[in-house]
Amino acid sequence: MHRIPLATMNHHYLFYDLERFFSAAHELGYPCVELWTAPQHFFMDYRQNEPIEKIERLARTYDVRVMGICPEQTNPKPNNMAAREETAQERTYAYFTRAVDVASAVGASQVLVTSGWAFYDEPLEDARARSAAMLRRIASYAEGHGINLAIEALRRPESLIANSVADLKLMLDMVGSPALKVCLDIGAMVDAGDTIQGYFDAFGPDVIHAHFVDCGTRSLHLALGDGERDVAADIATFARNGYRGVLSVECTDAQTHTDPVGADARSMRTYLDAYSRIEEAAPAL
């Protein structure tokens, strides 16, 4: 059966050099990574970014593909898709179009985006309209460069604009761009009371990416095997819906900061064990 590729991300390597992240991905058998643009790993703002050759060298040395770019974009980061002031809007546009350029240069296929966030003392509809307008601009640029934007829901109180399947559906309808697709973030999904099947029922093949994590009382973004979800059942639901993206482990659990390699090893082991269970139960899936 086709195995959905597993990727890892570098959030929990924030106290390690980026090369250790790439070398660990290679050692543990991850075929690809999603690169979070943390400034200590790969600096990027609206004016500049580190040389692309840094990423190209690591990807080549460790034979690990960069499948996507995940820019920094939640409050208090300045890159707010729903920014209100004109100067902040132009900085936001410059930042995300730079992310598109970086993705294109390193051979990635997508950039992860969110709706941005609203001020609590303004009408939510105003912020949502600003977010849609900015997403439309950036999506037009991305489409011209052959890059998709994958938008994920955010949890309250990170944002009030897009927390659920229904909110994301509204955003996609408002933007109306073929370059704007969906990232299913398991943590945000659980927080909103949505389901994996509900995402596919709403968006079908427009679900092109997943932040695939375990969830527990400590965090909704745990390494696989560190929480309470049935990882095999989750993978099987993606497979039944013909998912052709990757499952990207967005581990942000602070308890993994001192041993991110161990966390990634648990995730890979849990993923492989899950596929063994799936294949034993339904070898023709």
Rank of each mutant, 00 (worst) to 15 (best):
A236K: 11
D126I: 12
R130V: 03
K181W: 06
L160T: 05
D201I: 03
L160A: 14
W117Y: 15
A139M: 06
R130N: 04
G216I: 03
G227K: 04
P157H: 04
T217R: 13
D167W: 02
V207W: 00
V231Q: 02
A202F: 09
G227L: 05
A133K: 09
L222V: 08
R229H: 07
L135Q: 05
A139C: 13
D201K: 12
L180S: 09
A118Q: 15
R229T: 07
L224M: 11
D214P: 04
D185G: 07
W117G: 07
A239L: 13
L168V: 01
M171G: 00
A210T: 14
G227D: 04
N148I: 10
V190D: 15
P123R: 13
D167A: 05
G176H: 12
G187M: 06
G144F: 08
A223F: 04
P123W: 09
T217G: 11
H211T: 05
P157A: 07
I151T: 03
C183P: 05
A232G: 07
M189Q: 04
H145Q: 15
G225V: 12
E143A: 15
G193R: 14
M171V: 12
Y199P: 02
S177N: 09
N163M: 02
G216D: 02
R137W: 11
E152H: 08
A192T: 00
A236I: 01
E125N: 13
I151V: 14
C215L: 04
L149F: 12
D173I: 08
A210D: 03
A166L: 08
V190A: 13
M134A: 11
R229S: 06
G146R: 09
I208A: 08
L222F: 08
L168H: 00
G193V: 02
L124Y: 13
Y141D: 04
P157Q: 05
A139D: 03
V207T: 08
A210V: 09
F238T: 01
P123Q: 13
D206L: 14
S159I: 00
S177A: 11
H211P: 00
D121L: 11
L172G: 01
A127E: 01
T114Y: 08
K181A: 02
V182C: 01
D214L: 05
G193S: 08
T237L: 08
H145C: 15
R130W: 07
G193W: 07
D191N: 14
N163C: 10
F119G: 12
V175E: 04
R130G: 01
D167Y: 02
I235C: 00
Y120P: 15
G146E: 12
A188G: 06
M171N: 01
R136K: 14
R155I: 09
I138M: 05
Y141G: 03
L172V: 06
A188E: 01
M134R: 01
I186P: 05
A142M: 11
A162R: 00
L135R: 07
G225I: 09
F203R: 01
G116C: 12
P205Y: 10
S140G: 12
G198N: 14
A118F: 09
